[in-house]
Structures are given as C-alpha cells and as structure tokens.
Design a protein around this nucleic acid. Structure first.
Length: 603
RNA sequence: GCCCAAGUAGCUCAGAGGUAGAGCAACGCCUUGGUAAGGCGUAGGUCGUGGGUUCGAUUCCCACCUUGGGCUCCA
C-alpha cells in the first residue's frame, strides 16, 4: 500500500510537464478534481495531500464539524467530479512567493497546507500552486491541461488515516480512487479487482472446506480435513528438504515461565504482543510468540565444539501473537500460526557460506511454486544492540550475497528496518490484489546467544559465543498457504491437493460399473494417490462433474458401462486445471499422476 | 487500537416498527444420465450478543463481539 507522502515532493517549484501524458499525471489530476468536488460539496473541508499511487490516487480530508464521509457519499462526489470535468476547467500553474502562499492558505483555513509550507527547507523561497476552477492546491504538478481529460475514473473506498502516518496524530479521512486513460482500461482494472475477489483465499478456504475462523478464536484458524492434508503436505516438504540439508527438528513447550522471556528480552520488548497466563500468585507463563528462546535452551544443554557448527535446528511449533484486532486478515495475518522456523548456531566466519546455502534453499522452495518473490534487506535500526563494526561487517556480507543471488534489481534495501539484534533479509510475495506480504525471513543475531550465555570451544580451546541465524523460508505456513491459494486461484499443485483424483460412475446402479470404479480406486490408492469416489445418489453425472470443478479436484475420471464393456482399461480423464478431457490407459494415467506428484510440478 | 462499513437459513443475498423471504446447498421421491447445474417436494432462522425506547424491536438508540476496506503495527 502507498507510502506516506513526502511533503517536499508536494511543494516547491513546479515541475515541467513532460511531452507525454503519464498515468501518474492523470491520476494526480484526478486527485485534485476529487478534492475540488469534496470542497464544493462540503464547504470548509480541509485537504491534506493527494498523490498518484499504484493503480490510482487518493486525497486526505478533514471535514468541518466532525463530519465523516461514508462510502455512500462517494457517488455524490463522483457525480460532482464528472460535472467539473465536463466544464473543461484548465489546470492553471502559478509560482507564488512562499510567504504569499502561506497567507493564501492561512486565509482559506487550510491548516494542512500551512503546515506543509512551514516544514519546507528554509531556502525554499517560492512554491507552485495549481488552480482548477475555484480549487487551489499547493502542488508542483505536472497536470493534465484541463479537466476534460479525466473521464475514466472511479472512487473506490474511504479509509481513516493518521495525519502524516503517525498514530499519535489525529485521524483524517482518505478517499481512494482509480483513474485510467480510457473506459476500457478502467473496466479491465475493475475486472481484475473482481477476479481478485474470486481468488480471495478466505472465500476459497470456505468453499473448498480448508479452514474456518470462529468468533471465539479471532485470528486462530481451525484446519478442516481438506486443509489438514494441504498443510501437512507443505510441512512434510519442509521436513524432507530441511532434513536433507542438515536441519534437525526439535519440539519445545508452547508456554514458558516468564523468566525465559526475561532472559530473551521479549518480556521487555515484546510483551504487549504476547498472550500472558497468570498461574498463581508467584508464577506467570507466557505463550510463545517465537521459537528462538527455546532453541537457545536446547543449545545450552551441553558444551559444543566448533566442529559441530553450524548446528541447525528446525522448529515447526505453534506460535501465538496477540496482534492488534484491526490487523487480522484471514490466513495472511493470524494470531496463531506455525513456521518452518529454524535457528542455526555458527561461528562468525561461517556466516557468509551459510547464507549462500540458505539462499539456495530459498530458491528451491519458492521455485517449486513458480511464485514470484523479492528480497528486502533491513539494515541497522535506531536503538540497535551491539557495536557498529559488527553490524557493518554483517550488512556488507548480506549485501554481497544478495547481489550475487538476486542481482541488483532483485532486492531493495530498507535502511533502519533491521531487527534490533541484527540485519535481516525478508522474502516478499503478493496476494491476489497485489498487496505485498512478508513470508520468509533470514535474521542475523549476535545478541540472543550472548543473553543466553551460549558458547562453543574453538580450535585453540577458547570459549566463544556463536552467532545465530533465524531462518523461516515459507514464514508462517498459514500465510504462505493463503498466498498460494490466491496464486493458484484454488487450483493447488497435484502433490498438495486434498483429493487428487475423483471418480464418477456414469451409471450408479450398474454392478459392473461400480465394480470398475472400486477397482480403479484401489489401483490409484495403491499408487499412493488420494482418491475420492463421487457417487452421491440422485445426482446426475454432469452435476457431479461440476461439483468436482468447483472443489478444484485436479483430475476427474468418469467411468461408465461403455468403458467396462470395452474392457481395454482405458478411461476418460478430465483435467480441471487445463480444461478438457482425454482418454488414457489406466497404467499410463497412474504413471503420469505419480510422476507429477513426485516432481511436485506446480500445474 | 483508530476511521468507515457490515453481521438475516450451511452459502450468496432480499426485506421491513406488528416477531421473515429467494436462489443454491441439505433431506425425500422420481429420473440411469457420457464430461460444468434433470424434475417435484420437505425441512431449515431467538434476524451477531447484551441492554434501552416502545403496547410491540429482527427493524430505532447505546454498548460489546466478529468480519471487511484502510491507517498504525508486523519484534
């Protein structure tokens, strides 16, 4: 979602309009037009900032007299916008002396604009102002020549936003809209939004009976039988590959005495995000929000030699975090989740090599799903622990590795976004409507091993403190599955599908057909495939096929009297992902499906 | 947590100050059908929860819970 707007980009000397009109210019102008409409409909409205964003634009407002907009108001605003657009109002550019502009906006009661001017650097002597009819905005432009260029737009929603993006500030209201060059482009965009809604993992989760959220457990999914199969295949994949790469699984308690969280620092830094359980007058337990402290407990069970390092633990345990209520979002933001989490204890000189191996692994897991992903390097934040030299060394190493693996365009650096104990690399994917979600994360940590007093004996017999890498590749299984469901629009890869093949008898009262179905089911199951028979009485074959399609069963085999009588062991297979049917010998079918499962082909 | 909206049958939704309706799903009967919905019928709701106003509330008001869109947050 949009970054908060930098005031400096909004104010200053006007920019020259490029020869070509861009969508950004169009959308920025649409934002002005919307603000003009709002100011006409709600005299005394104050306007804040209104930039173009990906796919559209927004503008922030404060209406007089504590009035609040609702989505029902959008239609009237849009209508007024169309009236203004039809008047061919020119977007007139002016350069004003800074003080004159300040007086102008102060006189209009536009306190946000005055605040923006006051925050400009002291050497800014003049600013750009645009007029559209009676509407005046502090703005560098550029803009469309006149309002008649604006026709293909739609206002979408209203949201509350904190002024300047700071939750200590009062809330304004933001209207989001979208604008395009042509009506056809707008229609296509609206159709994409509709398709995204059809792909929404919350809808598919209900329709495919994968998971459920109950009012008594907000943010904590129930996994239904189909969902458990999918979840388990994903976890099984993680266990198998991680095991082959030297990770050893451990399981630790879900709740620990708060003394553990005091050692780890969570009690001081993370308590407001933890579920806390008072047990008696002296004892308080905390439900674990992360696996790392218990990994350190396990590490410390005995002395370690440098020869054992890197020591890799895999931890799939259930975690709970008390996320703020407004942030929950289906599987993509939960309060209960499990991660393919791991903690790697290693010597500092091993870090770079280990990161190489980790980035290889990440590629392996994400390529399996043909999922697009990108990296984000978070560097030293304010209030970091440790010394600058160690941080610099670690960041330089991560940067080198990322450039080698992802290329210069394959990642972004976000300064100050590292964890307080070390820099981190996050793996980002997108949901159906393009929202970016953090999945995996690789965090380098020099602090926690120190807090827990972890040691190893180096080659010269000295005790040293290991570093730790926190690594989750999927991140939370819940979130990753949510992204996968949307990515595949519910058509999960065959190896993950709850039901892989469903069998439908053409005649369900013919003994030989039913025997044929039972025999086929047996042979498919013997090959290790998950098979269901759809023989609900009273349903016609076509209805059963439709039922399979809606439940996203990858392969559907229809078997009837003609097949049985032909006796050639050939069946007709419907491929619901590619569409269409084809005839195949049963032996051939089994080979193909087991091969598709074994290779974990995504489609 | 904050702003806006929503919560009516398993699902999608309509409705209205006089205690509710449709389609699909479910169930029953008929239909035995060759690749995305066969027909008829039956049953199903304390209208999110708790208060208040009213002769009467599911409808109006208040609080709370949950959900959706955003904001903030995401260690």
């Amino acid at each position: 979602m949009p970054e908060e707007v930098d005031d400096a980009a909004e104010a200053g000397l006007p920019l020259e309009a490029p020869a070509e009109l861009s969508l950004d210019i169009l959308r920025h102008s649409a934002a002005h037009l919307m603000a003009a409409a709002v100011c006409e409909l709600y005299p005394g409205a104050e306007y804040d900032v209104g930039p173009a964003i990906e796919d559209g634009f927004f503008y922030n407002f404060r209406l007089p007299g504590d009035r609040h907009l609702t989505e029902a108001d959008l239609a009237a605003i849009e209508t007024r916008m169309r009236e203004l657009a039809a008047r061919r109002l020119p977007f007139r550019r002016e350069v004003m002396a800074r003080d004159d502009a300040r007086k102008l906006f102060e006189g209009m009661g536009q306190s946000f604009k005055v605040a923006i001017i006051d925050r400009l650097a002291s050497d800014v002597r003049s600013v750009g102002v645009y007029r559209t009819g009676d509407f005046i905005d502090l703005c560098r432009g550029p803009h469309v020549p006149d309002s008649s260029r604006l026709s293909a737009f739609r206002l979408l929603r209203v949201a509350g936003v904190y002024w300047r993006g700071d939750e200590r500030n009062p809330q304004l209201q933001r209207i989001y809209g979208t604008a395009w060059f042509t009506q056809a482009d707008l229609d296509a965009h609206l159709e994409r939004l509709a398709e995204a809604e059809r792909r929404d993992h919350r809808r598919l989760g209900r329709e495919l009976e994968l998971f459920h959220f109950d009012d008594t457990a907000p943010g904590m999914p129930y996994w239904l039988p189909n969902g458990v199969v999918v979840l388990n295949t994903l976890m099984g994949f993680a266990r198998e590959v991680r095991g082959a790469h030297g990770y050893r699984e451990v399981i630790s308690p879900i709740i620990n005495d708060k003394r553990l969280w005091e050692v780890s620092g969570h009690w001081d830094h993370y308590r407001e995000n933890m579920f806390i359980i008072p047990v008696d007058d002296q004892t308080v337990y905390g439900v674990k929000p992360m696996n790392c402290p218990n990994a350190h407990v396990i590490y410390n069970l005995r002395r370690h030699s440098y020869r054992e390092l890197p020591l890799r633990y895999l931890q799939l345990d259930t975690l709970h975090r008390y996320e703020r209520s407004g942030t929950l979002h289906g599987l993509l933001r939960t309060r209960k989740f499990q991660q393919d989490d791991s903690h790697i204890f290693l010597a500092e000189e091993q870090i770079e090599d280990e990161y190489e191996r980790i980035l290889e692994l990440i590629g392996l897991f994400y390529r399996t799903f043909e999922l697009e992903y990108s990296f984000r390097l978070g560097t030293r934040p304010d209030g970091f622990l440790g010394d600058v030299e160690t941080w610099d060394r670690a960041e330089a190493a991560l940067l080198r590795i990322l450039e080698r693996h992802a290329g210069r365009d394959g990642f972004v650096v976000e300064a100050g976004e590292g964890a307080f104990y070390g820099p981190k690399i996050d793996i980002l994917t997108r949901d159906a409507i393009g929202r970016s979600w953090q999945n995996g994360t690789v965090q380098l940590d020099f602090q926690l091993p120190r807090r827990f007093g972890c040691e190893y004996v180096d080659a010269s017999g000295e005790s040293r403190t290991p570093a730790v890498i926190h690594l989750a590749i999927y991140g939370s299984f819940e979130r990753f599955l949510g992204v996968l469901i949307e990515h595949f629009a519910g058509h999960l890869p065959l190896w993950m599908a709850a039901v892989q093949v469903e069998l439908i008898p053409v005649q369900d009262d013919v003994e030989s057909v039913l025997a044929g179905i039972a025999d086929l089911a047996g042979r498919l199951r013997e090959a290790g495939l998950r098979v269901a028979v759809n023989d609900r009485p009273g349903e016609r074959m076509q209805a059963r096929i439709r039922d399979c399609e809606l439940r996203r069963v990858p392969y559907v085999v229809v078997l009837g009297r003609r097949d049985v009588e032909r006796g050639d062991d050939v069946v007709t297979v419907r491929d619901t992902r590619r569409g269409g049917t084809e005839s195949r010998g049963v032996a051939d079918l089994i080979t193909r499906l087991t091969e598709e499962v074994a290779s974990r082909r995504p489609r």
